[in-house]
């Protein structure tokens, strides 16, 4: 038997998240391996997005800390944290595209500013990323000229622009059509396998969880902490009365009803 001495890729220790006096989740403890797709699921208001924001450096934790490869994230200096954040890519729930820039410029900006690419090179990469978003030909459109689903696709490829080590996706399948969604699952698996990207997804989308999740964290809105974590099979072998089991099998129940 060998003992793995390496620290976990991402680790949360006694993490409590929320805003001001309001605690949304408390005593969160989890360890995540690199090159995996992790799904954070839970009820409405259970703090999925807040957890992503704490992991990515936008919302400080109320208690506890997050460690990336054994290094404290929230206890380091702002400059060190800023450097650590350069390894992240984040897709926001509502797209968060910059309205004053075209779709192409939205993708080009991080490439120009952080990777110091020439305009031509950045345009080249942006074009490729827009092809991945299924939006070839929309380079010169502004975000307010396209639909929310299209904005979310662009937001996703913008998050992937710098090939980040860790990709955070907040409700990526929301407002997306089922065909693109299927294709998106394949893209996420390819990113994990080809680049070794670690992907954290906040979603309750059951097909996506079944299709891509290597590891699942379930944020319980009632107990306000992680009530279950593990791979899909482990969670499906849990007691049928547990909330996580009901979440994961809700679609099957619905399908049986239809039949």
């Amino acid at each position: 038997m060998t003992v793995n001495q390496e620290p976990p890729f991402i680790q949360a220790v006694d993490l409590s998240i929320g805003y001001g006096e309001q605690i949304i989740q408390r005593n969160l403890n989890f360890s995540i391996k690199a090159h995996q797709i992790i799904v954070i699921m839970g009820g409405i208001g259970s703090g999925k997005s807040t957890l992503l924001q704490t992991l990515v450096g936008l919302t400080p934790p109320l208690e506890g800390d997050v460690f990336y490869e054994g290094v404290s994230f929230w206890k380091q200096s702002p400059l060190e944290r800023d450097n650590a954040e350069r390894q992240f890519g984040m897709m926001y729930q509502h797209g968060a595209l910059w309205n004053s820039m075209t779709l192409e410029e939205n993708i080009m900006l991080p490439l120009r500013e952080l990777a110091n690419l020439s305009k031509e090179q950045a345009r080249h990469i942006a074009k490729y990323k827009l092809t991945l978003a299924g939006l070839s030909g929309y380079e010169n459109y502004f975000p307010y000229e396209v639909s929310i689903g299209m904005r979310k696709r662009v937001s996703m490829v913008r998050a992937m622009a710098l090939d980040p080590k860790i990709l955070f996706l907040d409700e990526p399948s929301e407002s997306m059509d089922p065909i693109y969604e299927q294709w998106l699952h394949e893209l996420l698996r390819t990113l994990r396998d080809a680049f070794g990207t670690t992907i954290l997804i906040a979603t309750n989308n059951i097909p996506m969880i079944y299709s891509v999740a290597d590891y699942i964290l379930f944020l319980d809105p009632y107990t306000q902490t992680i009530s279950a974590q593990g791979d899909l099979n482990a969670l499906l072998s849990m007691d049928k009365d547990t909330l996580v089991y009901q979440y994961l099998t809700a679609n099957q129940f619905f399908q049986r009803e239809l039949m």
Partner: peptide, 23 residues
């Protein structure tokens, strides 16, 4: 070509036509 590159090229080229949005 490396496997990963092949998969990414395949994804970019084979995006389902119904998922493509034409301007």
């Amino acid at each position: 070509l490396p496997q990963g590159v092949q998969r990414l090229l395949h994804l970019a080229r084979e995006i389902p036509s119904s998922a493509m949005i034409h301007p």
